[in-house]
Amino acid sequence: MSRFYELEPIAENYWRAIILFGRNSASYKFALAKTLFDFYSSGKTHITLEELAVPYATHLCEHLKEHPKQGTSEQSTFLDKLRAFNKGAVEKDEMISNTVRYGFVNVLDAFHNVHGKEIDVRFFIDERNKKNAIQLTDDFMLLGEQQQFANFAQETESRWRLVESAWENNLPRNLMLVEYEEEGSLLMGVNAIRRTSVTPARPALNGYQKGRCFYCFREISVIFGNEKMAEVDHFFPHKLKQCDNRKPIDGIANLVLACQECNRGENGKFDRLPSIELLERLFNRNEYLITSHHPLRETLISQTGNTTEKRQAYLQEAYNCSIEHLAISGRKWQPKQQGAAIF
């Protein structure tokens, strides 16, 4: 499914390809991405491994405190060293030296690899052999000038939390689902034992919409307080539960990010049913998530069906149910397009 990004080969989409679809055998990629954000704000482009190690290890240590499992492997010398630091068993200098020695063995090589091949844009050059450092590229610095750059850190953190949840809740898909909770706008992990917060919903969904409103393609933000702040919208009206409470209306398959104008503006959607064209867009979005390495894949399959045909039938049934039971007739809702159709 990397073709989704090749349709528009710009740095912003290559970056999201790394974060959203790069291989996840450990969380080092996310820690490195957040570390690069840290150095962008400083303006420094030539970074030694000793300099890189401090924020990189700090990000990992912070996550280890709440989520001890940070990879699929049962053993990791590097993570054991960080756990020891968190427990106070080693000093900061030793933690940094351990990070330089063990922490970058694979992540610097694999960072730009997506779906088994290296992407066409590099955000840093590996100079370990000559200078024991990395060099941030012009593409990375230009990335920082994009309006979407402020969203990237939150998208990275959200993706990291989703992966952690998938690792920690090593349960059959029928026992572990992710649903939306209106209060706090959170995605919640739900299993037979407990219900736990996973991650804020907006950044978890934003990357796949490329920072655009699902309906009109107007630019949106996931930064709290921003005038373009995205809103989480139920594609099928929330009151559809009145006719069938078994439908996962709060499930991932029914959630999209919308601009304020589309969600509740003068000509907004409110409880209106979107057009067939928008239903097709929702289906394509869900299939895109399912065919990726996304941790929400199993939730989508569990909620909508284990084959393409079943998932299509599920959406059609929900659409028919909306029309029949909610007395929705006539022309369906669709806003005027406000930006390029980039997904």
Rank of each mutant, 00 (worst) to 15 (best):
R3F: 13
E6A: 12
A11I: 10
A11L: 07
E12S: 11
N13K: 15
W15H: 07
W15D: 05
R16I: 08
L20C: 12
L20E: 15
F21E: 12
G22D: 09
A26I: 01
K29H: 03
F30I: 02
F30W: 06
A33Q: 09
F39C: 02
F39N: 06
Y40H: 13
G43A: 10
H46N: 14
H46I: 11
E51I: 07
P55F: 01
H59N: 13
L64P: 05
H67Q: 04
Q70G: 07
Q75A: 01
T77H: 03
A84K: 09
V90M: 10
E91F: 00
D93M: 02
S97C: 00
R101S: 14
L108T: 04
D109R: 15
A110M: 08
H115E: 15
E118W: 11
E118Q: 12
N129I: 03
L142T: 11
L142N: 14
N151M: 07
F152T: 09
A153S: 15
Q154P: 00
S158F: 07
E164H: 14
R173Y: 08
N174L: 06
N174E: 13
A192C: 05
R195D: 02
A201S: 06
R202V: 11
P203C: 11
Y215Q: 02
I220V: 09
G225M: 11
K228R: 15
V232T: 14
V232L: 05
F235V: 08
F236H: 01
P237K: 06
H238N: 09
Q242S: 15
D244T: 01
K247F: 11
K247R: 14
P248M: 02
N254C: 07
C259M: 05
Q260G: 04
G268I: 00
F270C: 01
P274N: 10
S275Y: 05
F283R: 14
N286Q: 09
E287P: 03
Y288V: 12
Y288N: 15
T304Y: 09
N306I: 04
T308A: 12
Q312K: 14
A313V: 06
Q316H: 08
Y319Q: 12
L326E: 01
Q334K: 12
G339F: 04
A341M: 08
A341H: 12
